[in-house]
Protein backbone atom coordinates (compact mmCIF):
# COMPACT_ATOMS: atom_id res chain seq x y z
CA UNK A 1 0.00 0.00 0.00
CA UNK A 2 1.22 3.48 -0.76
CA UNK A 3 2.36 5.56 2.17
CA UNK A 4 0.15 8.38 3.37
CA UNK A 5 2.99 10.26 4.97
CA UNK A 6 6.68 9.80 4.44
CA UNK A 7 9.26 11.58 6.56
CA UNK A 8 12.86 11.45 5.43
CA UNK A 9 15.91 12.59 7.42
CA UNK A 10 13.88 15.13 9.34
CA UNK A 11 16.00 17.50 11.44
CA UNK A 12 14.70 20.19 13.75
CA UNK A 13 17.26 22.31 15.57
CA UNK A 14 16.44 24.98 18.11
CA UNK A 15 18.93 27.84 18.06
CA UNK A 16 20.50 28.77 21.40
CA UNK A 17 20.93 32.53 21.48
CA UNK A 18 22.91 34.56 23.92
CA UNK A 19 24.83 37.77 24.31
CA UNK A 20 23.77 41.33 23.70
CA UNK A 21 22.72 40.86 20.08
CA UNK A 22 21.22 37.44 20.60
CA UNK A 23 23.73 35.75 18.36
CA UNK A 24 23.09 32.13 17.63
CA UNK A 25 26.01 30.27 19.15
CA UNK A 26 24.71 26.74 19.40
CA UNK A 27 21.83 24.49 18.53
CA UNK A 28 19.73 22.01 20.45
CA UNK A 29 19.42 18.99 18.22
CA UNK A 30 15.82 18.16 19.12
CA UNK A 31 15.21 15.93 16.12
CA UNK A 32 18.34 14.76 14.37
CA UNK A 33 17.69 12.74 11.24
CA UNK A 34 14.49 10.76 11.66
CA UNK A 35 12.79 8.77 8.88
CA UNK A 36 9.52 6.89 8.99
CA UNK A 37 6.33 6.41 7.03
CA UNK A 38 2.68 5.98 7.90
CA UNK A 39 0.26 3.99 5.78
CA UNK A 40 -3.42 4.97 5.48
CA UNK A 41 -5.48 3.77 8.42
CA UNK A 42 -2.64 2.46 10.57
CA UNK A 43 -1.41 3.53 13.99
CA UNK A 44 2.23 4.43 14.31
CA UNK A 45 3.70 4.98 17.76
CA UNK A 46 6.63 7.13 18.76
CA UNK A 47 7.86 6.43 22.28
CA UNK A 48 10.46 8.35 24.20
CA UNK A 49 11.21 9.93 27.52
CA UNK A 50 10.75 13.65 28.08
CA UNK A 51 13.32 15.58 26.11
CA UNK A 52 13.77 12.90 23.47
CA UNK A 53 12.24 15.09 20.75
CA UNK A 54 9.06 13.12 20.16
CA UNK A 55 6.71 16.09 20.55
CA UNK A 56 8.89 18.16 18.21
CA UNK A 57 8.20 15.63 15.42
CA UNK A 58 4.46 16.04 15.90
CA UNK A 59 4.62 19.81 16.01
CA UNK A 60 6.74 19.93 12.87
CA UNK A 61 4.27 17.73 11.01
CA UNK A 62 1.29 19.97 11.75
CA UNK A 63 3.30 23.08 10.96
CA UNK A 64 3.72 24.53 14.44
CA UNK A 65 7.49 24.31 13.95
CA UNK A 66 9.59 24.48 10.84
CA UNK A 67 11.92 21.69 9.77
CA UNK A 68 15.60 22.61 9.62
CA UNK A 69 16.25 20.03 6.93
CA UNK A 70 14.75 16.85 5.55
CA UNK A 71 11.57 16.24 3.62
CA UNK A 72 7.98 15.47 4.49
CA UNK A 73 5.99 13.83 1.70
CA UNK A 74 2.22 13.61 1.97
CA UNK A 75 0.20 11.54 -0.51
CA UNK A 76 3.09 11.59 -2.94
CA UNK A 77 3.76 15.35 -2.80
CA UNK A 78 6.50 17.23 -0.98
CA UNK A 79 4.89 19.33 1.75
CA UNK A 80 7.99 20.51 3.59
CA UNK A 81 7.26 24.03 2.34
CA UNK A 82 4.20 25.40 4.08
CA UNK A 83 2.87 27.22 1.02
CA UNK A 84 2.34 23.92 -0.73
CA UNK A 85 0.39 22.62 2.24
CA UNK A 86 -2.36 25.18 1.87
CA UNK A 87 -3.00 24.35 -1.75
CA UNK A 88 -3.36 20.63 -1.27
CA UNK A 89 -5.58 20.71 1.85
CA UNK A 90 -2.81 19.25 3.99
CA UNK A 91 -3.87 21.44 6.89
CA UNK A 92 -7.37 20.01 6.71
CA UNK A 93 -6.36 16.40 6.37
CA UNK A 94 -3.73 16.37 9.12
CA UNK A 95 -5.11 17.22 12.56
CA UNK A 96 -3.75 17.18 16.08
CA UNK A 97 -4.93 16.13 19.55
CA UNK A 98 -3.03 17.85 22.32
CA UNK A 99 -1.97 16.57 25.72
CA UNK A 100 -3.49 19.27 27.88
CA UNK A 101 -7.15 19.51 26.98
CA UNK A 102 -7.82 22.60 29.08
CA UNK A 103 -5.17 24.82 27.57
CA UNK A 104 -5.80 23.63 24.03
CA UNK A 105 -9.51 24.58 24.00
CA UNK A 106 -10.38 28.28 23.92
CA UNK A 107 -11.95 29.04 27.33
CA UNK A 108 -14.13 31.84 25.94
CA UNK A 109 -15.78 29.75 23.24
CA UNK A 110 -18.70 27.39 23.49
CA UNK A 111 -18.30 23.78 22.39
CA UNK A 112 -20.35 24.32 19.23
CA UNK A 113 -17.92 27.03 18.15
CA UNK A 114 -14.82 25.04 19.09
CA UNK A 115 -15.83 21.95 17.16
CA UNK A 116 -17.54 24.04 14.48
CA UNK A 117 -14.51 26.19 13.68
CA UNK A 118 -12.74 23.73 11.36
CA UNK A 119 -16.11 22.98 9.74
CA UNK A 120 -16.72 26.66 9.03
CA UNK A 121 -13.22 27.12 7.69
CA UNK A 122 -12.86 24.04 5.55
CA UNK A 123 -16.38 23.01 4.63
CA UNK A 124 -18.29 26.31 4.74
CA UNK A 125 -21.00 24.83 6.92
CA UNK A 126 -23.46 27.23 8.58
CA UNK A 127 -26.52 27.32 10.80
CA UNK A 128 -28.55 24.15 11.06
CA UNK A 129 -26.20 22.04 8.94
CA UNK A 130 -23.28 23.02 11.15
CA UNK A 131 -25.18 22.22 14.32
CA UNK A 132 -26.23 18.87 12.94
CA UNK A 133 -22.62 17.91 12.13
CA UNK A 134 -21.38 19.04 15.57
CA UNK A 135 -24.07 16.98 17.33
CA UNK A 136 -23.08 14.00 15.19
CA UNK A 137 -19.43 14.46 16.14
CA UNK A 138 -20.28 14.79 19.81
CA UNK A 139 -22.20 11.51 19.56
CA UNK A 140 -19.17 9.69 18.13
CA UNK A 141 -17.28 10.57 21.33
CA UNK A 142 -20.23 9.77 23.60
CA UNK A 143 -21.37 13.28 24.51
CA UNK A 144 -24.91 14.63 24.45
CA UNK A 145 -26.46 17.52 22.60
CA UNK A 146 -26.53 19.40 25.93
CA UNK A 147 -22.81 19.92 25.59
CA UNK A 148 -23.27 22.26 22.60
CA UNK A 149 -23.67 25.50 24.52
CA UNK A 150 -21.34 24.81 27.41
CA UNK A 151 -17.82 26.09 27.95
CA UNK A 152 -14.72 23.89 28.28
CA UNK A 153 -14.35 24.44 32.04
CA UNK A 154 -17.76 22.86 32.62
CA UNK A 155 -16.46 19.44 31.61
CA UNK A 156 -14.28 16.89 33.35
CA UNK A 157 -10.79 16.12 32.05
CA UNK A 158 -11.89 13.02 30.18
CA UNK A 159 -14.83 14.77 28.56
CA UNK A 160 -12.61 17.67 27.50
CA UNK A 161 -10.16 15.29 25.91
CA UNK A 162 -13.06 13.70 24.02
CA UNK A 163 -14.07 17.17 22.80
CA UNK A 164 -10.48 17.55 21.62
CA UNK A 165 -10.83 14.28 19.73
CA UNK A 166 -14.15 15.41 18.19
CA UNK A 167 -12.55 18.68 17.09
CA UNK A 168 -9.69 16.84 15.45
CA UNK A 169 -12.05 14.49 13.63
CA UNK A 170 -14.38 17.30 12.45
CA UNK A 171 -12.74 18.13 9.08
CA UNK A 172 -12.55 14.40 8.19
CA UNK A 173 -8.77 14.13 8.41
CA UNK A 174 -6.71 11.26 7.06
CA UNK A 175 -4.03 11.55 9.72
CA UNK A 176 -4.38 12.54 13.35
CA UNK A 177 -1.31 13.34 15.39
CA UNK A 178 -2.02 12.52 19.03
CA UNK A 179 0.58 13.96 21.39
CA UNK A 180 0.22 12.21 24.76
CA UNK A 181 -3.60 12.28 24.48
CA UNK A 182 -4.29 10.32 27.67
CA UNK A 183 -1.32 10.89 29.95
CA UNK A 184 -3.20 13.41 32.10
CA UNK A 185 -6.21 11.14 32.62
CA UNK A 186 -7.31 8.57 35.17
CA UNK A 187 -7.12 4.90 34.30
CA UNK A 188 -10.78 4.28 33.54
CA UNK A 189 -11.18 7.59 31.70
CA UNK A 190 -8.06 6.79 29.72
CA UNK A 191 -9.61 3.52 28.61
CA UNK A 192 -12.70 5.40 27.48
CA UNK A 193 -10.78 7.92 25.35
CA UNK A 194 -8.64 5.17 23.80
CA UNK A 195 -11.74 3.15 22.92
CA UNK A 196 -13.34 6.15 21.20
CA UNK A 197 -10.12 6.74 19.28
CA UNK A 198 -10.18 3.13 18.09
CA UNK A 199 -13.85 3.40 17.11
CA UNK A 200 -13.11 6.49 15.08
CA UNK A 201 -10.26 4.76 13.33
CA UNK A 202 -12.53 1.88 12.30
CA UNK A 203 -15.33 4.21 11.22
CA UNK A 204 -13.38 6.84 9.28
CA UNK A 205 -10.16 4.97 8.47
CA UNK A 206 -7.86 7.67 9.84
CA UNK A 207 -4.23 6.99 10.55
CA UNK A 208 -2.76 7.92 13.92
CA UNK A 209 0.69 9.09 14.83
CA UNK A 210 0.65 8.26 18.51
CA UNK A 211 3.26 10.09 20.57
CA UNK A 212 3.58 8.84 24.13
CA UNK A 213 5.87 7.79 26.93
CA UNK A 214 3.47 5.12 28.12
CA UNK A 215 4.50 1.77 26.70
CA UNK A 216 1.29 0.10 27.83
CA UNK A 217 -0.89 2.55 25.94
CA UNK A 218 1.21 2.37 22.78
CA UNK A 219 1.18 -1.40 22.92
CA UNK A 220 -2.60 -1.28 23.02
CA UNK A 221 -2.96 1.24 20.20
CA UNK A 222 -0.15 0.82 17.67
CA UNK A 223 0.84 -1.79 15.09
CA UNK A 224 4.26 -0.33 14.35
CA UNK A 225 6.38 1.83 16.59
CA UNK A 226 9.66 3.62 17.02
CA UNK A 227 11.66 4.14 20.21
CA UNK A 228 13.28 7.54 20.31
CA UNK A 229 16.26 8.72 22.33
CA UNK A 230 18.31 11.90 22.04
CA UNK A 231 16.58 13.05 18.86
CA UNK A 232 17.04 9.81 16.94
CA UNK A 233 15.28 6.49 16.60
CA UNK A 234 17.10 3.70 18.42
CA UNK A 235 14.76 0.91 17.41
CA UNK A 236 11.93 0.59 14.92
CA UNK A 237 9.65 -2.37 14.35
CA UNK A 238 6.27 -3.99 14.72
CA UNK A 239 4.70 -4.41 18.12
CA UNK A 240 6.04 -7.96 18.41
CA UNK A 241 9.52 -6.97 17.27
CA UNK A 242 9.84 -4.36 19.99
CA UNK A 243 8.03 -5.99 22.89
CA UNK A 244 9.06 -9.60 22.33
CA UNK A 245 12.54 -9.17 20.95
CA UNK A 246 14.07 -5.82 21.96
CA UNK A 247 17.68 -5.54 20.81
CA UNK A 248 18.85 -2.10 21.84
CA UNK A 249 19.83 -1.67 25.50
CA UNK A 250 17.73 1.50 25.76
CA UNK A 251 14.58 -0.31 24.64
CA UNK A 252 15.28 -3.15 27.06
CA UNK A 253 15.74 -0.71 29.90
CA UNK A 254 12.54 1.14 29.02
CA UNK A 255 10.51 -2.06 28.84
CA UNK A 256 11.90 -3.29 32.15
CA UNK A 257 10.87 -0.04 33.85
CA UNK A 258 7.14 -0.57 33.18
CA UNK A 259 5.55 -1.52 36.50
CA UNK A 260 4.03 -4.98 36.03
CA UNK A 261 0.84 -6.01 37.76
CA UNK A 262 2.06 -9.50 38.49
CA UNK A 263 2.63 -9.37 42.24
CA UNK A 264 4.16 -12.83 42.56
CA UNK A 265 7.02 -12.02 40.20
CA UNK A 266 7.84 -8.59 41.52
CA UNK A 267 11.14 -9.49 43.17
CA UNK A 268 12.36 -11.11 39.97
CA UNK A 269 11.12 -8.19 37.94
CA UNK A 270 12.93 -5.67 40.13
CA UNK A 271 16.21 -7.59 39.98
CA UNK A 272 15.95 -7.82 36.22
CA UNK A 273 15.34 -4.08 35.98
CA UNK A 274 18.30 -3.23 38.18
CA UNK A 275 20.52 -5.59 36.22
CA UNK A 276 19.56 -3.83 32.97
CA UNK A 277 20.09 -0.46 34.61
CA UNK A 278 23.69 -1.45 35.43
CA UNK A 279 24.17 -2.94 32.00
CA UNK A 280 22.95 0.28 30.45
CA UNK A 281 25.53 2.28 32.37
CA UNK A 282 28.41 -0.07 31.64
CA UNK A 283 27.64 -0.79 27.98
CA UNK A 284 26.99 2.77 26.92
CA UNK A 285 29.99 2.84 24.58
CA UNK A 286 28.71 -0.15 22.66
CA UNK A 287 25.41 1.47 21.89
CA UNK A 288 26.25 5.16 21.54
CA UNK A 289 29.15 6.75 19.63
CA UNK A 290 31.79 8.83 21.37
CA UNK A 291 29.69 12.01 21.18
CA UNK A 292 26.83 10.20 22.86
CA UNK A 293 24.83 10.05 19.63
CA UNK A 294 22.74 7.10 18.58
CA UNK A 295 24.15 5.08 15.67
CA UNK A 296 22.30 4.95 12.33
CA UNK A 297 19.56 2.33 12.09
CA UNK A 298 20.48 -1.09 10.69
CA UNK A 299 17.81 -3.29 9.18
CA UNK A 300 17.70 -6.65 11.02
CA UNK A 301 14.61 -8.17 9.50
CA UNK A 302 12.08 -6.80 7.03
CA UNK A 303 10.27 -4.86 9.72
CA UNK A 304 12.81 -4.55 12.52
CA UNK A 305 15.66 -2.01 12.56
CA UNK A 306 18.05 -1.24 15.40
CA UNK A 307 20.75 1.39 15.92
CA UNK A 308 23.81 -0.75 16.64
CA UNK A 309 27.54 -0.19 16.27
CA UNK A 310 28.96 -1.57 13.04
CA UNK A 311 31.23 -4.51 13.59
Amino acid sequence: MEELLKVKDLCVYYPVRSGMFKHVNDYVYAVDGVSFDIKPGESYGVIGESGSGKSTIGQTLVGLLEATSGTITYAGKDVTDKHVRKKMQYNKEVQMIFQDSLSSLNPKKKIIDIIGEPLKNFENLKGVALKKRVVELLKTVGLDEEALYKYPYQFSGGQRQRIGVARAVAPRPKLIIADEPVSALDLSVQAQVLNYMKDIQEKYGVAYLFISHDLGVVHHMCDRLAIMHKGRFVEVGTRDDIYEDPLHIYTKRLLAAIPQTNVLLRKKHRDERQRLECEYDSLKEDYYDKNGHVYPLEQITKTHAVALKKE
Binding site: L187, S188, Q190, A191, L194, N195, K198, D214, L215, G216, V217, H219, H220, R239, Y243, L255, I258, Q260, T261
Partner: peptide, 11 residues
Protein backbone atom coordinates in the same frame (compact mmCIF):
# COMPACT_ATOMS: atom_id res chain seq x y z
CA UNK B 1 -9.48 -1.18 32.46
CA UNK B 2 -5.71 -1.15 32.52
CA UNK B 3 -3.84 -1.36 29.19
CA UNK B 4 -1.17 -3.98 29.61
CA UNK B 5 2.03 -4.49 27.77
CA UNK B 6 1.84 -8.26 27.85
CA UNK B 7 -1.47 -8.88 26.17
CA UNK B 8 -3.46 -7.33 23.38
CA UNK B 9 -7.16 -6.80 23.67
CA UNK B 10 -9.36 -5.21 21.12
CA UNK B 11 -11.24 -2.99 23.52
Amino acid sequence: SMPQADKVRDK
